[in-house]
């Protein structure tokens, strides 16, 4: 039987072990937050550059960070989504500014990314069983972090963005099936959509919110599929982050003429 404080002869003295060390871990626990910090910072630096870079389109390739292009003044007609450009001549800023908030919001509120940046950027905690440096903690129980609960709305938006990237890839396939850029965009579109479908909110919406799976066999099968993807959510989040960065850079380098061989 477990002894409890009630059995104690000196409850007033009862407290945690007074260990002075922040952690007694002897492994390289700092590697995960450090590597995460470096990768995410590199992604942010690249994304910031890409937003303000204007070489985002070279027919038939459309850089993912600027797709869809919704501004009449800054988007070539071919780059517009079905010729749709709701932002008129008055809008002359980079087109990425109009849409990047959606995929960025999806990743920022993603359960995997939350884990990663809470650990790497906010050190809350930096690693398991390593003390965090903050004197107070309320987590996601109040403003502003309670806003993380809007993740599912970014998921709905990410579905649309994923479909648009797939459309860009199919368009490139039709116009230039042998182009390396076409297959770069196809690979990226597949990874982005897999990452989107593996989302925890997607898992919840398909059937996770139900308690009687047996009454909803189709939703249950969809939940099973999403659950399998969900088990790889972290991997898909990272791979798709690299793929979108790589595909975006590739298109821009082709647009700039840096990559100019025949099947580019």
């Amino acid at each position: 039987m477990t002894q409890t404080a009630a059995d104690s002869p000196a409850p007033a003295r009862r407290q945690r072990a007074q260990l002075k060390e922040r952690t007694l871990r002897t492994d390289q626990w700092w590697r995960y937050p450090l590597v995460t910090f470096i990768i995410f910072t590199a992604f942010l630096v690249y994304a910031t550059w890409a937003i303000f870079d204007n070489d985002f389109f070279v027919a038939p390739y459309h850089a993912p960070f600027a797709s869809p292009c919704l501004a009449e003044a800054v988007c070539p007609e071919e780059a517009q989504l079905f010729g749709w450009a709701p932002f008129g001549d008055w809008y002359t800023w980079p087109p990425g500014l109009l849409i990047l908030g959606l995929p960025a919001g999806f990743r920022f509120t993603c359960y995997y990314y939350r884990k990663a940046y809470y650990r790497a950027f906010w050190l809350s905690p930096p690693a398991c069983a390593v003390n965090e440096p903050h004197s107070k903690y309320t987590g996601e129980s109040r403003f502003p972090l309670i806003l993380q609960n809007i993740h599912r709305y970014f998921f709905y938006a990410a579905i649309v963005v994923g479909l648009i990237l797939a459309y860009d890839a199919v368009k490139a396939l039709i116009e230039k099936p042998a182009g390396i850029g076409t297959w770069v965009l196809i690979g990226n579109a597949i990874l982005i959509n897999l990452y989107t479908l593996s989302c925890h909110s997607c898992r919840h919406i398909t059937a996770g919110r139900l308690n009687h799976f047996s009454k909803h066999p189709i939703r249950y099968r969809a939940w099973g599929f999403v659950s399998k993807l969900n088990a790889k959510h972290q991997e898909l989040a990272l791979i798709s982050m690299f793929s979108v960065m790589g595909a975006d850079l590739y298109v821009r380098l082709v647009a700039k003429g840096v990559i100019s061989f025949p099947f580019a």
Binding site: Y111, R114, K115, Y118, S124, C128, T138, G139, S141, L145
Partner: peptide, 17 residues
């Protein structure tokens, strides 16, 4: 959420580890 503090969890997954 209100009584058991689910909102405090910031899903850093140490429990799973």
């Amino acid at each position: 959420q209100e009584d058991h503090g689910l909102g405090y969890c910031n899903i850093t997954k140490c429990c799973t580890e």
